[in-house]
Write a protein that binds this DNA or RNA. Structure first.
Lengths: 343, 343
DNA sequence: ATGAAAGCGCTAACAA
DNA sequence: TTGTTAGCGCTTTCAT
């Protein structure tokens, strides 16, 4: 291990001067600087990051918490991958490191421990859901003064830092699109209620449907609920098929359910894009590869991750005030909802 | 900030005793232990992880390096997600933390800096490729005495730690499967040559083909090369279609290319599973959702990640000897290669 | 422009 | 069984 001390000796300066050179602080003679740099080079000296963190009382780490998802190997979803990439890019730009935490089922999640032990300076929490225990944990974090940010999840009544997307608008657009194509009997396949954006999507859907005169009773009949998995979409196919004479289009709250649904319906002889129009949500990779390709609502996950990291790190650096941002979503039209594909 | 000192005072013991309690070392009276625990609880004391790392001269972090992949938002691939999940689970089990590094294009990758600055105790390198500069960097790492492990990539002639999968066997199985179905004119769509497992797959393919008497010239005519992206598969469709009378099956080196290929061929009127048999590789999520569902070779990515972390951490903990492991792959048959689907 | 020195919170060797 | 103490490598304040 080469320490600062050895560099100082070789360069004939004090240890403090070596630090100054490496941190670029304070005035110093160009010549001194160069001598130090040469000495460091010669010895292959690299400052010890842990010692720096220790002395600075800053870990230099941004934590990212991933939700516990049984069975499904966690990352196998478009959403996490994109958000994480966005965070990673920003964190790197800011000179931070990214510490990943996989949540388990323990009540006291261990990411709280990462905070308390000061192994992270701030934290981005992905896949949070609005349950009493989750709320309580977040409130506790807030009370203890830890900096964190939620992505793609809103907690009504709290002022947590949040980077969300406009799922009301996205859903509204999706349904409007189907209406423009002439559909009116539009079923809505929603995901789990514990995510705020399920409610948002329902809100967007409802708003559009009400505009064409649908009442609560009608909407109720057109409502289905899965859990965002492909399998849940697949399983709902039968129920939707049973009411095929009262349905001419389907809006699913994510692509995975939409795809499961399309597969299930196909097996029953009901083809998406021919017998029924289908629109998904997320515009994930798979939307491009289904048959027919899936019309879907694009969510700027990458940007959301990047922005979350940026704002959070700025806050940690002293910028005052919290933040609650909503980014725009955008409909991407493909064949699953197109009239022409239906001859 | 609550420190050990305050806990010691409240409990009426020395600081060292507090440490002992928290680390469970040395003999101690049950009563002392309890007094310390109560004091800690009362003060809401949590040991400072950075200070511990500093004193122990161990970061407690396992680094994971992700390759630079332009354009494609990095995680959007099954492989990384799975491996990372596997690593995450193991790392957590072992009480380590996971530090993610996204590689950029810089020559001196910054993960080397993570090593030199001792921010990680060891490193798992994903998506490495066999280029001269990469080899040189790895050799340098080795020379500097850093512990690292490669996943899904073999460097011939080196003794780096590696967790790989049997891609020769996997490919051999895939081709044999097609042969059992009666196909003989089997084209091979490979990925980039800089990955050792491209060569492995070619090797497995060749072995099977030679067994039925194919010579080099024939194999040459059946060889295509993309870059593992869906787009590259899509673009190759035309070339394959042009030679459709000399091809009755296609083995693609990953699912993404297989899917692009199937899409491209369909647009040309050549349906996978009807006009031509197709087998992919990776058995990723999408293999289940294509139409027809894609026969593919399953690779135990999750286990590979988990094993890599386990062996590497054991090595860091002092276990002697390096490791080079190859896990088995397994063919998963679906409709894209089935005769029945071809009427 | 540079040096001296006091920590940072903990581990671990040694003493008692 | 418990206390004392010397670091760990660096940052930062205060002198000079």
């Amino acid at each position: 291990m080469v320490t600062r001390k050895e560099v100082a000796e070789l360069a004939g300066v004090s240890e403090a001067t070596v630090s100054r050179v490496f941190n670029g602080v304070g005035p110093m003679k160009a010549q001194t600087k160069q001598r130090v740099q040469e000495a460091a080079q010669a010895l292959n000296y690299h400052p010890n990051a842990i010692a720096q963190s220790f002395a600075r009382r800053k870990s230099g780490n941004l934590g990212v918490v991933l939700p516990y998802v049984p069975k499904v190997h966690l990352f196998s979803t478009y959403y996490f991958s994109e958000v994480l990439s966005g965070i990673g890019a920003k964190v790197k730009e800011k000179g931070y490191d990214l510490l990943l935490s996989f949540r388990s089922l323990d009540e006291e999640s261990d990411y709280i421990e990462r905070f308390r032990s000061q192994k992270v300076d701030a934290c981005i929490i992905l896949g949070a859901s609005d349950t009493p225990s989750e709320r309580a944990q977040l409130k506790r974090l807030e009370a203890e003064g830890h900096s964190f940010c939620l992505v793609n999840q809103h907690f009504a009544g709290e002022s947590f830092n949040e980077i969300d997307a406009d799922h009301i608008g996205g859903s509204y657009q999706a349904v409007k699109h189907l209406m423009e194509k002439g559909y009116r009997q539009i079923a809505f396949v929603n995901g789990s209620a514990q995510f705020s954006n399920s409610a948002d999507r329902y809100e967007g859907y409802t708003r559009a449907m009400r505009e064409v005169g649908k009442d609560s009773e009608e909407l109720h009949k057109l409502y289905y609920e899965g859990n965002y998995s492909r399998t849940s979409g697949y399983r709902m196919a039968a129920s939707l098929y049973a009411r095929r004479h009262e349905i001419d289009a389907i809006f699913a709250a994510n692509d995975r359910m939409a795809i499961g649904l399309m597969q299930g319906l196909r097996e029953l002889g009901w083809e998406a894009g021919r017998d029924v129009a289908v629109v998904g949500y997320d515009d994930s990779d798979v939307a491009r590869v289904t048959d027919p390709p899936l019309t879907s609502v694009a969510v700027p996950f990458y940007e959301m991750g990047s922005l979350a990291a940026e704002r959070l790190l700025a806050q940690v650096a002293g910028e005052p005030g919290g933040f609650q941002v909503k980014l725009d979503t955008e409909l991407v039209v493909r064949q699953s909802s197109s009239r022409s594909a239906m001859e």
